[in-house]
C-alpha cells in the first residue's frame, strides 16, 4: 500500500497531466458536428502517431551490435511514420473537400 502511495507522490506531475488531458480531450471534442466525425477520427489517429517519438528514442538508444533491437526499432520507426504521415495526409485530403465554394 505504502509503495503505491509513494509511487503516486513520485509521479504526481504525470498523474496531473493525465487527468487534465482527459478533461481537455473530452472538452475539445464535445461540440463537433457529426459531419466532421470522420475527419476528426482520422486527425486524432494521426496525433496518436506521436508514439513515433518513443520509436526514435528506442532506435537511437539501441546498441549498434544488438541486431534484434535495431530491427524491431527500425520497424517501429517505419510503422509509426506511416501512421503519422498517412494520417495527416488522409485527413488533409478529406478536409480539402469541405472547402466552401464561392
Amino acid at each position: 500500500m505504502e509503495q503505491i502511495l509513494n509511487w503516486v507522490t513520485e509521479n504526481q506531475q504525470i498523474i496531473y497531466v493525465v487527468v487534465l488531458m482527459i478533461f481537455v480531450g473530452i472538452e475539445v471534442i464535445g461540440r463537433v458536428p457529426s459531419v466532421l466525425h470522420t475527419p476528426l477520427m482520422s486527425g486524432a489517429n494521426a496525433i496518436h502517431g506521436v508514439v513515433i517519438i518513443g520509436a526514435i528514442i528506442v532506435m537511437g538508444k539501441a546498441d549498434p551490435d544488438n541486431y534484434l533491437a535495431l530491427t524491431l526499432g527500425f520497424f517501429a520507426v517505419v510503422l509509426g511514420m506511416v501512421n503519422v504521415v498517412g494520417g495527416f495526409v488522409v485527413t488533409d485530403r478529406m478536409l480539402e473537400m469541405f472547402k466552401k465554394k464561392k
Binding site: V18, M21, I22, G25, V28, I29, M41, A44, I47, G54
Partner: peptide
C-alpha cells in the same frame, strides 16, 4: 508530448 498526445486521443477517441 507522448503523454499529452496519447491521453488526448485516448479521451477524445
Amino acid at each position: 508530448v507522448m503523454l499529452t498526445g496519447g491521453i488526448l486521443v485516448g479521451a477524445a477517441g
